[in-house]
Design a protein around this nucleic acid. Sequence first.
DNA 1: CCTTGTTTTGTTATGTTATAACATTACCCA
DNA 2: TGGGTAATGTTATAACATAACAAAACAAGG
Lengths: 154, 154
Amino acid sequence: MAVSRTEQILNSAEQQCRKQGVRMTPQRKQVMSLMLEQGGPQTAYQLLDQFKARYQSNAQPPTMYRALDFLVQQGLAHRLSSTNQYLACDHITCQHGHRGTVFLLCDQCGGVQETPMAGAAVDELQQTLDEVGFVIQREPLLEVHGRCVDCAAS
Amino acid sequence: MAVSRTEQILNSAEQQCRKQGVRMTPQRKQVMSLMLEQGGPQTAYQLLDQFKARYQSNAQPPTMYRALDFLVQQGLAHRLSSTNQYLACDHITCQHGHRGTVFLLCDQCGGVQETPMAGAAVDELQQTLDEVGFVIQREPLLEVHGRCVDCAAS
DNA sequence: CCTTGTTTTGTTATGTTATAACATTACCCA
DNA sequence: TGGGTAATGTTATAACATAACAAAACAAGG
């Protein structure tokens, strides 16, 4: 293919940022690129090591955390708080604004599967929120731990 | 009232442990008691400070983390991974085995509201899991961030 | 009882994750 | 082209969590 999937997503991310009036700087792009190439979830320090190896050998933790915060803010990445990991969003190129995301985290192989939260669940949640007057500030992320189909078999 | 709510819950917790064939030691009970009295979510180190002040001045982090791990394992407490906090389970005394719990976390006042995950949401989630063959290992916890009704008003 | 295996607790040290604070540089735009 | 804002660099440290091993408490059969 002429344009790799990583490039496609990076371009799409850049457009989204322009639309939001925020800056996708080279540094942020490099971090996102690392996330996309690895594919799976990674800790900030793992990403920092790669970033140092590849782009800037003297980089410090705040550099990575700032980039990650930015990407998460923009919805370009997710933070998995139950494992302290970060992950490029799987659905950047699709249109639907997410109203909820489910992550299936395999405790054996460390893999993650990302799926949109189903409609009824989102509606029910919204109803609960309305009942108690709770105003949401971030897209809800549900982190479900267990075994993926491959690991469950073995 | 003759018996405080805290005592009620502690007794109920003790019974549950006996049924499971695990030991609710004095130390574990003390930690749970601290969680119940505070009411809101607290970090392990906050609880450790209280534990030292109240029960054992030389206690170290592993002591607290062990007790917390035990209580979470037994379903007597929850860990809020998005805020690194721990919280006594609100529904110990009610019967229904939870199949999912939603936490509404107010980012302004730090309060938490705990509600069972609604039925359809749980069913939908189970369906998703079945589709991909994912086998769950812990009760799913959904941590939703925002503003509670009081803080949203102000 | 006593002794033996298991669970719990004590203790020291250290690993891992994340941010505060302030200096410097790059960028935007009037 | 200067002045404000956003981003990055840099140092230090805060906050969260666990490894590893020693000692004590417990429970259960002989």
